[in-house]
Write a protein that binds this DNA or RNA. Structure first.
Lengths: 187, 187
DNA sequence: CGACCGATGTCAGCCGCTGTCATCACAATA
DNA sequence: TATTGTGATGACAGCGGCTGACATCGGTCG
């Protein structure tokens, strides 16, 4: 056995999630998180850049998946459809609804966390833009398709999280995309 | 004459802008800002909720203008066009290009400031969504039109700020909107 | 004149976050 | 086996953002 308990990073994430859910993000100190994980405050900051990041660290993997899905979309797909398809397929694989609900409740309850969420989405939009340009899509169209795709995802995600919602995320994404097309066409 | 110099809030904003531009956001302490303004750190926080907010305090006025423009758009205007028109007209009135460039350079150089900018845009999107619902637009369409409008604005603003750009902001907004329509239609 | 008010100053203190150095099990290598 | 890293963690000091509490003192109102 090693000198330390294994998976320090995971224990920190678990402890942070519990405490954020129990008493709220602001009311939780990093020292408390570390203590529950059997570590020190200093060690928390060796694993996570700041107190918020522990809730968003998984996002990098997600971004990779999205980008790969866009890159791998058939050449025939229009930009916005390549993006939507990527959102659909990745969304299918990754998301656990109950976990998402709890996590989102924590985020929605705190402005700092909402800020961090937005910059992650913005980073995702940039990555998607880059992937589209790699497909030969011109800059302006790439940016707009990526931003529009994110907008579609956000709207669909909110509905998916909502109580009483029966449909699955990919279906909601499709519906949301259709809604966007209707909105932008009908003028 | 009063006991204190007038316009403490304005002096703080001025001092903050100067220091952020001179040596960067992170390298500036609130105490330094306050000192340049002839005040104390504590007083800074009485005027601005945090160190970042001094760069975004004007946004509330802007949001009001946007919302009013949407509300006042002719009934015949489709949602996305009402939003675009609001962005155009308000954008015309308010923005000084050189000031915007300097402010944006400060923001772009710092992740925390980018986060704050994003949440302000998000707040604007919510306000626009509300204004659209007030026009009788259904929820889904209202959200999507607002988000899409913001995306259009972001893309246009970046181009407007860019060096060598000749066109004015309203024109770029129109072009950006046309680009979005092309992207979402062509599939 | 006296009571109140509102903007600011002063001070103490919490907490997020960082730099620095020490510690010590384990691995690699001689 | 003895030596020498190495890497994850602990311990500690310190900065800076931010807040609460109380004091100060011109101006205003009755």
């Amino acid at each position: 056995m090693g000198r330390w308990q294994p998976n320090a990073r995971g224990r920190l994430a678990q402890a942070a999630l519990e405490l954020y859910a129990e008493r709220g993000f602001e009311q939780t100190t990093v020292a408390e998180i570390a203590k529950r994980a059997g570590l020190t405050e200093r060690t928390f900051f060796r694993h996570y850049a700041d107190k918020r990041e522990v809730l968003f660290a998984g996002g990098a993997v997600l971004e990779d998946l999205f980008v790969r899905a866009v890159t791998d979309a058939p050449d025939s797909a229009a930009p916005i459809d390549a993006v939507a398809a990527a959102l659909e397929t990745t969304g299918t694989v990754l998301l656990d609804r109950e976990f998402s609900r709890q996590r989102q409740a924590i985020i929605d309850a705190n402005a700092e966390l909402r800020e961090r969420e937005l910059i992650k989405l913005s980073s995702l939009a940039s990555a998607l833009t880059g992937a589209l340009r790699g497909r030969g899509v011109p800059d302006l169209a790439a940016s707009l398709a990526a931003e529009a795709g994110i907008a579609v995802f956000k709207v669909a995600f909110v509905r998916w999280i909502g109580e009483g919602e029966q449909k699955d995320l990919p279906q909601l994404i499709r519906e949301s995309l259709d809604g966007l097309k209707a909105v932008t066409t009908g003028s």
